[in-house]
Design a protein around this nucleic acid. Structure first.
Lengths: 256, 256
DNA sequence: CGTTGAGTTGACCATCGTCAACAGGAGTGG
DNA sequence: CCACTCCTGTTGACGATGGTCAACTCAACG
């Protein structure tokens, strides 16, 4: 893991400014009502009863972000926090020398801005089209301070995130390339399964470069490893992701 | 980073059962009064006023743990949570194949059991003599649920821990051996400095094996890297730790 | 004085990073 | 429609970083 000279293809992750995309479904209001939100019970909102939900609804705005748009930018002051309702968001930190480490991929139900603090410590960029409820940070914080349930739920999500971060430390510190890629696939599958129940194909909306930057590998090693898995009939690589043929073997390789 | 065959020197981290050591200072009561606790404002207790402090004092017991004793054991159910007041605690996870990843070193002011959940996800072992306030988990949880300040403080500590975990991901994923060791030294120095103000010598109470398991390296690489730093007059290796000669260079190597 | 465990150093080698070439798809413009 | 570029992804050849194995020192301890 030598210190890379100033990143090779920076163009790959320069993302444009925050650009909400058209929200046609602003007309179908009930689709955007919190009450009928399909990830409500996975999200921070699980803590709220119907009355509280409509209170919180007054604070938030459902927004749609086009691919590559920026939800949060590392180093700025935090104006907003988010609850993701669809799509996938990449969370990353950049080193002074230009290297990038992806610290996670947020999926529907995930919350961005756990600490409610003033400083954004990582960038958040939409990978594909993303829908998210955006809250003004201070208003959300004030609201949470009056609702012990909500604060407890936020804490629960944060603690869960911490545990997940610790899992990933183990992967980064103690797994070889095969183990890292296997752990990544299994982990993503399990998280998506919690939302969708059946996940046959694991959609890989992120690029190989993203996966590499998440696993502390290079794009070449990720590509090679996936090809090797395919040759060993452990997976099939599809245009939009990966299908597991031998989940058990992959799971053992990636096991923590 | 090949998958190690079942750990080389397991003996190094078999720790004995929870064994509080004699607490002679049980006589000098005021030293153990929360009111005069020297890490109070760094710890979870910073959220409590004097009245609340004496309430919480009824829940907790100040205990002393001898080196290598176990505060929490991975996989068991959580009976207790801790606030560390002196000494250093090693937090680790073990993989099915016996490999170990150290996910952090807790120092005075740190809290163990952030999630307040039923399952212990990492082991916590005293590295040297450790003093800690022990709370029954459920009682602490109930208490926190009645004190929004305390819950907010717990959440603050957890969010801080999460941010720290993300820092460490960057180190594990994107730094070479030199950068990892440098980042470790600087990070430890800064954390100790927050407690002690002046830290000339960085005490390394943990073994080289511990450092290696924290940084995703081997004991040999850690040893070699420290020797190299010493040869380059960046540090001096002392019996009980390390002294920085050229902090600036180390800091740059370890920079995030 | 032998044992044990931590730490250091050297020699060798495997894994994964580096560099390079190439394939295929999307978008652009003539 | 085709030529062109740009970008992502794949594959191969080579080499450096860091892991493996081994030998050694030193301090602590009985």
């Amino acid at each position: 893991m030598p210190e890379k000279p100033p990143a090779r293809n920076d163009g790959a992750h320069t993302a444009q400014l925050l650009t909400p995309c058209p929200v046609p479904s602003i007309l179908h209001l009930d689709e955007h009502r919190c009450e009928s939100c399909h990830v409500r019970m996975q999200s921070i909102c699980a803590a709220l009863d119907l009355h509280e939900l409509s209170e919180s609804e007054l604070l938030s705005r459902p927004l749609c972000y086009s691919p590559r748009s920026v939800l949060l930018r590392e180093g700025e002051t935090t104006e907003t926090v988010f609850s993701i309702t669809s799509g996938m968001v990449r969370l990353s930190r950049t080193l002074p020398d230009g290297q990038r480490q992806i610290i996670g991929f947020a999926i529907p139900g995930d919350f961005l801005g756990h600490d409610l603090s003033e400083h954004v410590v990582f960038s958040a960029e939409a990978i594909n089209t993303v829908n998210a409820c955006r809250f003004p940070r201070q208003a959300f914080k004030d609201f949470a301070n009056t609702k012990p349930n909500l604060m407890a739920r936020l804490h629960e999500l944060t603690a869960h995130e911490l545990s997940h971060a610790q899992d990933h430390m183990v992967v980064l510190g103690r797994k070889n390339a095969d183990g890292k890629v296997a752990a990544f696939l299994i982990n993503l599958r399990d998280r998506l399964a919690r939302l969708d129940h059946v996940v046959l194909n694991i959609p890989l909306a992120m690029t190989r470069q993203d996966i590499a930057d998440y696993l502390g590998l290079t794009i070449e090693t990720v590509s090679r490893t996936l090809s090797k898995f395919a040759k060993q009939k452990l997976i099939v690589i599809t245009p939009d992701g990966v299908r597991l043929l031998n989940e058990e073997k992959i799971r053992i390789m990636g096991e923590l």
